[in-house]
Computed example of a mutant assay.
Amino acid sequence: MKRIVPIIWLLCCLLVCAAPGCATQHRLADGTSRGITRVGHSIQVGAFREVKNAERLTARLQEKGIEAFYFRKDDGLYAVRFGDFPSREAARQEARKLVKERLLTFFFIASPREQVLKQGQRTEIHKPSAPVSVKKPSGDMGGVAARTAERFVGIPYRWGGDTVVEGMDCSGFVRAVYNLCGVNIPRTSREQFRVGEGVGRADLQDGDLVFFGSSEESINHVGIYVGAGKFVHAPRRGEEIRVSALDETYFAKRFMGGRRYF
Protein backbone atom coordinates (compact mmCIF):
# COMPACT_ATOMS: atom_id res chain seq x y z
CA MET A 1 0.00 0.00 0.00
CA LYS A 2 2.87 2.38 0.83
CA ARG A 3 4.31 1.84 -2.65
CA ILE A 4 0.96 2.40 -4.38
CA VAL A 5 0.35 5.88 -2.90
CA PRO A 6 3.46 7.51 -4.47
CA ILE A 7 2.60 5.93 -7.83
CA ILE A 8 -0.95 7.32 -7.70
CA TRP A 9 0.41 10.75 -6.74
CA LEU A 10 2.85 10.68 -9.68
CA LEU A 11 0.10 9.71 -12.13
CA CYS A 12 -2.08 12.58 -10.90
CA CYS A 13 0.77 15.05 -11.45
CA LEU A 14 1.30 13.78 -14.98
CA LEU A 15 -2.40 14.09 -15.79
CA VAL A 16 -2.55 17.65 -14.47
CA CYS A 17 0.51 18.74 -16.47
CA ALA A 18 -0.87 17.13 -19.60
CA ALA A 19 -4.05 19.19 -19.39
CA PRO A 20 -4.52 21.88 -22.06
CA GLY A 21 -4.29 24.65 -19.49
CA CYS A 22 -0.65 23.85 -18.83
CA ALA A 23 0.30 25.18 -22.26
CA THR A 24 -0.92 28.65 -21.30
CA GLN A 25 1.55 30.72 -19.33
CA HIS A 26 0.09 33.45 -17.16
CA ARG A 27 1.29 36.87 -16.15
CA LEU A 28 3.95 37.34 -13.52
CA ALA A 29 3.67 39.77 -10.63
CA ASP A 30 5.43 42.52 -12.59
CA GLY A 31 2.86 42.34 -15.38
CA THR A 32 4.93 40.19 -17.73
CA SER A 33 4.48 36.49 -18.50
CA ARG A 34 6.74 33.50 -18.54
CA GLY A 35 8.49 33.62 -21.89
CA ILE A 36 8.04 37.41 -21.93
CA THR A 37 10.76 39.74 -20.66
CA ARG A 38 11.50 43.44 -20.54
CA VAL A 39 13.85 44.74 -23.21
CA GLY A 40 17.15 46.11 -21.92
CA HIS A 41 19.35 48.64 -23.70
CA SER A 42 19.31 48.55 -27.51
CA ILE A 43 21.49 49.95 -30.28
CA GLN A 44 19.80 52.32 -32.72
CA VAL A 45 21.37 53.43 -35.97
CA GLY A 46 20.53 55.78 -38.80
CA ALA A 47 18.21 58.58 -39.81
CA PHE A 48 17.40 57.47 -43.35
CA ARG A 49 15.05 59.39 -45.61
CA GLU A 50 14.50 56.35 -47.84
CA VAL A 51 13.34 53.04 -46.42
CA LYS A 52 15.58 51.09 -48.82
CA ASN A 53 18.66 52.40 -46.99
CA ALA A 54 17.30 51.10 -43.70
CA GLU A 55 16.56 47.79 -45.45
CA ARG A 56 20.16 47.49 -46.64
CA LEU A 57 21.62 48.07 -43.19
CA THR A 58 19.15 45.65 -41.63
CA ALA A 59 20.10 42.99 -44.19
CA ARG A 60 23.83 43.49 -43.50
CA LEU A 61 23.28 43.08 -39.76
CA GLN A 62 21.12 40.01 -40.28
CA GLU A 63 23.84 38.45 -42.40
CA LYS A 64 26.00 38.69 -39.26
CA GLY A 65 23.32 36.85 -37.27
CA ILE A 66 21.98 40.00 -35.61
CA GLU A 67 18.21 40.19 -35.21
CA ALA A 68 17.68 43.75 -36.43
CA PHE A 69 14.60 45.58 -37.67
CA TYR A 70 13.84 49.02 -39.07
CA PHE A 71 11.01 51.39 -38.24
CA ARG A 72 9.68 54.85 -39.04
CA LYS A 73 10.40 57.52 -36.42
CA ASP A 74 8.32 60.51 -35.33
CA ASP A 75 10.09 62.77 -37.84
CA GLY A 76 9.36 60.45 -40.78
CA LEU A 77 12.93 59.17 -41.04
CA TYR A 78 13.82 55.48 -40.76
CA ALA A 79 16.08 53.95 -38.13
CA VAL A 80 17.41 50.46 -37.42
CA ARG A 81 17.37 48.94 -33.95
CA PHE A 82 18.74 45.73 -32.47
CA GLY A 83 20.05 44.13 -29.29
CA ASP A 84 18.93 43.53 -25.73
CA PHE A 85 21.78 44.41 -23.38
CA PRO A 86 21.78 44.43 -19.56
CA SER A 87 23.51 47.82 -19.37
CA ARG A 88 24.25 50.91 -21.43
CA GLU A 89 27.95 50.12 -21.32
CA ALA A 90 27.42 46.58 -22.66
CA ALA A 91 25.42 48.00 -25.57
CA ARG A 92 28.05 50.66 -26.20
CA GLN A 93 30.85 48.07 -26.28
CA GLU A 94 28.99 45.98 -28.85
CA ALA A 95 28.26 49.07 -30.96
CA ARG A 96 31.94 50.09 -30.90
CA LYS A 97 32.87 46.59 -32.01
CA LEU A 98 30.52 46.89 -34.99
CA VAL A 99 31.97 50.30 -35.82
CA LYS A 100 35.43 48.72 -36.00
CA GLU A 101 33.98 46.10 -38.35
CA ARG A 102 32.62 48.98 -40.47
CA LEU A 103 29.04 47.84 -40.09
CA LEU A 104 28.11 51.03 -38.25
CA THR A 105 29.29 54.62 -38.20
CA PHE A 106 27.21 56.55 -35.69
CA PHE A 107 24.92 54.94 -33.14
CA PHE A 108 22.53 55.77 -30.32
CA ILE A 109 21.89 53.67 -27.20
CA ALA A 110 18.16 53.37 -26.51
CA SER A 111 17.26 53.04 -22.84
CA PRO A 112 14.92 50.31 -21.55
CA ARG A 113 11.21 50.87 -22.17
CA GLU A 114 11.87 53.92 -24.31
CA GLN A 115 8.75 54.37 -26.44
CA VAL A 116 8.51 55.43 -30.06
CA LEU A 117 5.34 57.43 -29.41
CA LYS A 118 4.86 59.91 -26.59
CA GLN A 119 1.67 60.41 -24.62
CA GLY A 120 -0.90 62.48 -26.50
CA GLN A 121 0.96 62.37 -29.81
CA ARG A 122 -1.06 61.73 -32.95
CA THR A 123 -0.01 59.04 -35.38
CA GLU A 124 0.52 59.68 -39.07
CA ILE A 125 -0.29 56.59 -41.12
CA HIS A 126 2.31 55.99 -43.85
CA LYS A 127 0.73 55.07 -47.21
CA PRO A 128 -2.31 53.28 -45.73
CA SER A 129 -3.62 50.39 -47.81
CA ALA A 130 -6.91 50.53 -45.91
CA PRO A 131 -8.70 53.34 -44.05
CA VAL A 132 -7.56 53.65 -40.45
CA SER A 133 -8.90 56.05 -37.86
CA VAL A 134 -6.13 58.09 -36.27
CA LYS A 135 -6.46 57.94 -32.50
CA LYS A 136 -4.55 59.25 -29.54
CA PRO A 137 -2.73 56.74 -27.35
CA SER A 138 -5.00 55.42 -24.64
CA GLY A 139 -2.41 56.05 -21.95
CA ASP A 140 -1.53 52.39 -21.41
CA MET A 141 1.08 50.29 -23.17
CA GLY A 142 -1.57 48.48 -25.22
CA GLY A 143 -2.56 51.78 -26.79
CA VAL A 144 1.07 52.66 -27.42
CA ALA A 145 1.63 49.27 -29.10
CA ALA A 146 -1.40 49.78 -31.36
CA ARG A 147 -0.32 53.27 -32.40
CA THR A 148 3.23 52.01 -32.99
CA ALA A 149 1.88 49.22 -35.21
CA GLU A 150 -0.12 51.74 -37.25
CA ARG A 151 3.09 53.65 -37.90
CA PHE A 152 4.37 50.67 -39.94
CA VAL A 153 1.38 50.56 -42.32
CA GLY A 154 2.49 50.87 -45.94
CA ILE A 155 6.13 50.05 -45.20
CA PRO A 156 7.52 47.05 -47.12
CA TYR A 157 8.20 44.17 -44.76
CA ARG A 158 11.66 42.75 -45.45
CA TRP A 159 13.27 41.83 -42.16
CA GLY A 160 13.04 38.37 -40.64
CA GLY A 161 12.27 35.52 -43.03
CA ASP A 162 15.07 33.05 -43.62
CA THR A 163 17.89 35.48 -42.80
CA VAL A 164 17.70 34.97 -39.04
CA VAL A 165 14.72 32.86 -38.03
CA GLU A 166 12.68 30.71 -40.41
CA GLY A 167 9.10 31.85 -40.91
CA MET A 168 9.39 35.09 -38.97
CA ASP A 169 7.35 37.21 -41.38
CA CYS A 170 4.21 38.07 -39.42
CA SER A 171 5.56 37.16 -35.99
CA GLY A 172 8.75 39.15 -36.63
CA PHE A 173 6.66 42.25 -37.25
CA VAL A 174 4.70 42.01 -33.98
CA ARG A 175 7.92 41.15 -32.16
CA ALA A 176 9.52 44.34 -33.52
CA VAL A 177 6.55 46.48 -32.42
CA TYR A 178 6.60 45.01 -28.92
CA ASN A 179 10.37 45.45 -28.78
CA LEU A 180 9.91 49.17 -29.44
CA CYS A 181 7.44 49.21 -26.55
CA GLY A 182 10.03 47.64 -24.25
CA VAL A 183 8.79 44.04 -24.23
CA ASN A 184 10.40 40.88 -25.59
CA ILE A 185 7.97 38.21 -26.80
CA PRO A 186 8.78 34.80 -28.35
CA ARG A 187 9.83 34.63 -32.00
CA THR A 188 7.16 32.50 -33.66
CA SER A 189 3.39 32.95 -33.74
CA ARG A 190 2.88 29.53 -32.14
CA GLU A 191 5.16 30.42 -29.25
CA GLN A 192 3.49 33.81 -28.88
CA PHE A 193 0.08 32.14 -28.71
CA ARG A 194 1.20 29.98 -25.78
CA VAL A 195 2.05 32.92 -23.52
CA GLY A 196 0.18 35.95 -22.29
CA GLU A 197 -3.41 36.21 -21.15
CA GLY A 198 -6.13 34.68 -23.32
CA VAL A 199 -8.64 37.21 -24.72
CA GLY A 200 -11.89 36.55 -26.59
CA ARG A 201 -12.88 38.58 -29.62
CA ALA A 202 -15.48 40.62 -27.72
CA ASP A 203 -12.87 41.66 -25.15
CA LEU A 204 -10.04 42.65 -27.50
CA GLN A 205 -8.25 45.90 -26.68
CA ASP A 206 -5.66 47.99 -28.49
CA GLY A 207 -2.29 46.26 -28.57
CA ASP A 208 -3.58 42.70 -28.11
CA LEU A 209 -2.23 40.13 -30.53
CA VAL A 210 -4.76 38.28 -32.69
CA PHE A 211 -3.97 34.78 -33.96
CA PHE A 212 -5.15 32.75 -36.92
CA GLY A 213 -4.85 29.16 -38.07
CA SER A 214 -6.75 25.96 -38.77
CA SER A 215 -6.64 25.08 -35.04
CA GLU A 216 -4.99 26.21 -31.82
CA GLU A 217 -2.25 23.67 -32.51
CA SER A 218 -1.70 25.05 -36.02
CA ILE A 219 -1.31 28.82 -35.53
CA ASN A 220 0.26 30.31 -38.67
CA HIS A 221 -0.50 34.05 -38.60
CA VAL A 222 -0.59 36.91 -36.10
CA GLY A 223 -1.36 40.62 -36.09
CA ILE A 224 -1.81 43.53 -33.66
CA TYR A 225 -5.33 44.68 -32.81
CA VAL A 226 -5.84 48.44 -33.28
CA GLY A 227 -9.53 48.80 -32.46
CA ALA A 228 -12.82 48.87 -34.40
CA GLY A 229 -12.44 45.21 -35.37
CA LYS A 230 -9.20 45.85 -37.28
CA PHE A 231 -5.62 44.69 -36.94
CA VAL A 232 -2.23 45.50 -38.47
CA HIS A 233 -0.17 42.65 -39.89
CA ALA A 234 2.55 41.64 -42.34
CA PRO A 235 0.88 39.39 -44.96
CA ARG A 236 4.14 37.90 -46.20
CA ARG A 237 7.76 38.90 -46.60
CA GLY A 238 8.24 41.55 -49.28
CA GLU A 239 4.67 42.91 -49.13
CA GLU A 240 3.59 46.11 -47.43
CA ILE A 241 2.34 45.98 -43.87
CA ARG A 242 -1.40 46.57 -43.95
CA VAL A 243 -4.64 46.86 -42.00
CA SER A 244 -7.28 44.14 -42.27
CA ALA A 245 -10.61 43.46 -40.57
CA LEU A 246 -11.42 40.48 -38.39
CA ASP A 247 -14.74 40.24 -40.26
CA GLU A 248 -13.05 39.49 -43.58
CA THR A 249 -14.05 35.96 -44.58
CA TYR A 250 -10.53 34.57 -44.65
CA PHE A 251 -9.66 35.83 -41.17
CA ALA A 252 -13.09 35.26 -39.61
CA LYS A 253 -12.88 31.54 -40.39
CA ARG A 254 -9.37 31.21 -39.00
CA PHE A 255 -9.50 33.42 -35.91
CA MET A 256 -8.22 31.43 -32.93
CA GLY A 257 -8.24 34.09 -30.22
CA GLY A 258 -6.25 36.96 -28.79
CA ARG A 259 -3.45 37.32 -26.25
CA ARG A 260 -2.63 40.23 -23.96
CA TYR A 261 0.89 40.88 -22.70
CA PHE A 262 0.69 44.27 -20.96
Rank of each mutant, 00 (worst) to 15 (best):
S189K: 06
F255Y: 15
G257E: 03
G139W: 14
A91C: 09
P131L: 11
P186K: 04
A54P: 07
C22Y: 14
I125R: 02
V80T: 00
F211P: 04
R88W: 08
R56T: 13
E248L: 10
F251V: 12
V174E: 06
R113E: 15
L104T: 03
Q119A: 09
A110N: 01
I155P: 00
I7P: 03
G227R: 08
D30Y: 03
L28D: 07
P112Y: 10
F106Y: 14
E55F: 11
H26E: 12
L117M: 05
A130L: 11
G76F: 06
E55Q: 13
T105G: 12
G172S: 02
G154E: 05
S138H: 04
S87A: 07
A234Q: 00
S87C: 10
K97H: 10
S42M: 06
L10D: 05
I219D: 07
G31Q: 04
R236W: 00
A146E: 13
Y178V: 11
L10K: 06
I66H: 00
P186V: 09
I43E: 03
L117V: 11
F193M: 07
F193V: 06
T32K: 12
D208A: 06
S189I: 12
V226E: 05
L15T: 11
A23S: 14
F71I: 01
E239A: 00
Q25S: 11
E89V: 10
E124S: 13
A228E: 15
V174T: 15
F251Y: 15
Q93T: 10
N184I: 12
C22P: 01
I4C: 12
S244T: 14
Q192W: 10
P186G: 02
T32H: 13
I36W: 13
W159I: 04
V153L: 08
G143F: 13
T58D: 02
G198H: 07
G154T: 08
T249N: 10
L204T: 04
Q93K: 14
I155T: 13
L103R: 00
Q205Y: 02
G139I: 13
P186R: 06
R147P: 03
G40K: 05
Y78G: 03
P20H: 09
G83T: 02
V144C: 03
Q205S: 12
P6F: 14
S215F: 12
P131R: 11
S171A: 07
I125V: 15
I7N: 04
V177G: 05
V39W: 02
L117N: 02
P20V: 08
Y225K: 09
E191M: 13
V116Y: 04
Y250W: 12
D74Y: 05
G182P: 09
S42F: 01
N53I: 01
F152A: 07
L209Q: 05
V232I: 15
E197Q: 14
K100L: 06
F262A: 15
L246F: 10
L28M: 11
S42G: 00
N179T: 12
I185V: 15
R113F: 11
R190G: 07
V116M: 05
E114T: 06
S33T: 14
G142T: 10
V195G: 05
